[in-house]
């Protein structure tokens, strides 16, 4: 088979397609994160930990979530950072 790199013109097209797909996906994801601000979120974390909090903001690398009123098993933590590596999924209503 012919490797795609043998057709430079096709590569440019493919690159542009990929860039368009990436930016559409990223923009939509960023808008999703922005829309959660001040919403109640349920975090489902590793070790079967489930906690609720009010979402604040995410950093752009999706490493940390800044939240308020985090209901931990031992009480409410007013301000908290949650490591995204600890999170399996989270839900909210729209």
């Amino acid at each position: 088979s012919i490797p795609s790199s043998a057709v430079p013109g096709g590569n440019t097209e493919l690159l542009q397609e990929e860039q368009q797909a990436r930016s559409a996906l990223r923009e939509s994801f960023l808008r999703c994160l922005l829309s959660i601000s001040n919403k109640k979120v349920q975090f489902h974390m590793h070790e079967n930990v489930k906690v609720e909090a009010t979402f604040g903001a995410s950093d752009i690398d999706v490493l940390n979530f800044q939240v308020s009123n985090l209901h931990t098993p031992i009480g409410v933590q007013k301000e908290a950072l949650i490591r995204c590596q600890d999170v399996i999924s989270f839900t909210f209503d729209v």
Partner: peptide
Amino acid sequence: MEAAMQLTFERNCDLKRPKYWPVIPLKL
């Protein structure tokens, strides 16, 4: 968009001084 979001995140952290929860990561 990323700059605006990162700025919000950093400003919130400056104002609210959140601490990591849990203190020890669940997953390394």
